[in-house]
Amino acid sequence: MSYHGRSRNRDRCGSGVNLTLDTSCTDRRAFRTDLPTGTNVDDVAKGLAQATGADRVASVPGVISLRIGRDEVVLVARTGRVQIRVDAEIVRHERRLRAESLFVFLLQAVRAADVNNR
């Protein structure tokens, strides 16, 4: 399957949240998803950190950056954009798989945040 075309690279993984290849100058290392409107990004970040043992690392104001091993998940508080950055040492053909494994944790954190907000 090719992941280059925008129309072809949208994978449905539940919760109405999709994982797509994001812009990146190095091949297939950055993936994007956008959290549903109204999602509490802080709660999602906390849930994700708890589930993965991620460390929160310094970033710019308004952005939460989590280091999971050598991968990184970056969440934008005001827009709900999430970027999953796969480490460069993961071979190219396994990068999407790695991103999807982190995406699963993210979805769980989104669902948990949703339940808590109800």
Binding site: T23, S24, V60, P61, V63, V74, T79, R81
Partner: peptide
């Protein structure tokens, strides 16, 4: 510059 402009960090800031 291109990557910074399109980054989530830029979007947040």
């Amino acid at each position: 510059f291109g990557n910074i402009l399109m980054s989530p960090e830029w979007e947040g800031m």
